[in-house]
Amino acid sequence: MRLLAIWIINALALLALPYVVPSVQVASFGTALVVALVLGLINAVLRPLLILLTLPVTLLTLGLFIFVINALLFQLAGNLVDGFNVGGFWPALLGSIAYSLISWALSALLFPQGKR
């Protein structure tokens, strides 16, 4: 149940994204659901491998290179899914940061980490 809620939260965050970063476009809620799934799969499979392969650069930049990896993976999702358009590297960078912040805020509202 929680996994389904997180998936919907991520889709809602993607729908809010064009209001924050106009160069990122999402066609519909169905597209947002597909993109949330694709981003989840990309982050589960490719991201750890890329972080491991680029570890020297990441250490040299004190972790800031992870933002570049996130932007490139966000742009990859834009290339894989029809109806989800990312206007380039900088919109992908801003979009990935905004997507993370929006989905984090929505998750924190729905699933507070207080006492259980």
Rank of each mutant, 00 (worst) to 15 (best):
I8Y: 12
A27N: 12
V34G: 01
L60S: 10
G40M: 07
I66R: 09
L33F: 03
I97R: 03
A32T: 09
F29C: 06
P112N: 09
I8R: 10
W7G: 10
G95N: 01
L37Q: 04
V24S: 02
P112W: 01
M1V: 10
G87Q: 00
W90A: 08
W7V: 09
Y19M: 13
S28A: 11
A108D: 06
L101R: 05
L17G: 05
T61S: 14
V35E: 01
I69A: 05
L109A: 13
A32M: 07
L39F: 03
A44Q: 05
L60F: 15
L55Q: 05
D82S: 15
L41E: 00
L14G: 03
S28M: 01
L55K: 06
F65E: 01
Q75G: 09
P112I: 03
N70R: 09
A11M: 09
I9C: 11
L59F: 14
A71P: 11
A11D: 06
A32C: 10
L72K: 08
N43R: 10
L55N: 08
Q75F: 15
L41D: 00
S107L: 14
D82H: 14
M1N: 07
A16D: 01
L109C: 11
I69Y: 13
V81N: 10
Y99R: 00
V86Y: 08
